[in-house]
Design a protein around this nucleic acid. Structure first.
Length: 112
DNA sequence: GAAATGACGGAGA
DNA sequence: CTCTCCGCCATTT
C-alpha cells in the first residue's frame, strides 16, 4: 500500500459524495478530493476498493464514456446500475446534464 | 534506473 | 465526429 490512507479516504469520500442519478469524471473526483491531476489514481483506487464499499458506477470518463471496453462485463454492469438511477447513455455516452459538478454555476445561469 | 502500463484528460489533425 | 498523440502520475516490469 504505497498510497497513504488519508489520500485514499479523501477520494472515497469524494466518490460517496456523488448524488444518486448523477455522475462525475475521474478528474473531477480527484479535484474534489484536493488532488488535481490524479485522475488515474482514482481509477486505481476504485479497482482496489472492496466491492460494495462505494458507488463506483457513478464515476465515468470526462467525455461521458465508461472506462471499460464497450459491451464488456463490467461495462454492462455499470450501465445497468446507472440506468436504474435514471442515468441513461445515448450513443454510448452519458449526456453532460448528468454530470454532478460540471459547470455548476454556468449551468444554473443558462438552464436554471 | 529506464521503459511500459493503465477504471484519465485535453489538444489537434 | 473519429482517431492520434502527448502530458500526467503511480505502479510494475
Amino acid at each position: 500500500m504505497t498510497t497513504t490512507d488519508p489520500i485514499r479516504e479523501a477520494i472515497f469520500a469524494a466518490v460517496r459524495a456523488i448524488p444518486r442519478g448523477r455522475v462525475a469524471a475521474y478528474g473531477e473526483v480527484a479535484a474534489r478530493a484536493g488532488l488535481p491531476r490524479r485522475a488515474r489514481l482514482v481509477g486505481r483506487l476504485l479497482r482496489e476498493a472492496p466491492s460494495g464499499a462505494l458507488p463506483w458506477h457513478r464515476v465515468v470518463r470526462s467525455d461521458g464514456r465508461l472506462a471499460f471496453p464497450p459491451d464488456s462485463e463490467p461495462w454492462l454492469t455499470q450501465r445497468e446500475r446507472l440506468s436504474r438511477e435514471g442515468v441513461v447513455m445515448t450513443g454510448g455516452r452519458i449526456p453532460a446534464r448528468f454530470f454532478a459538478w460540471r459547470d455548476e454555476d454556468l449551468d444554473a445561469a443558462l438552464w436554471g
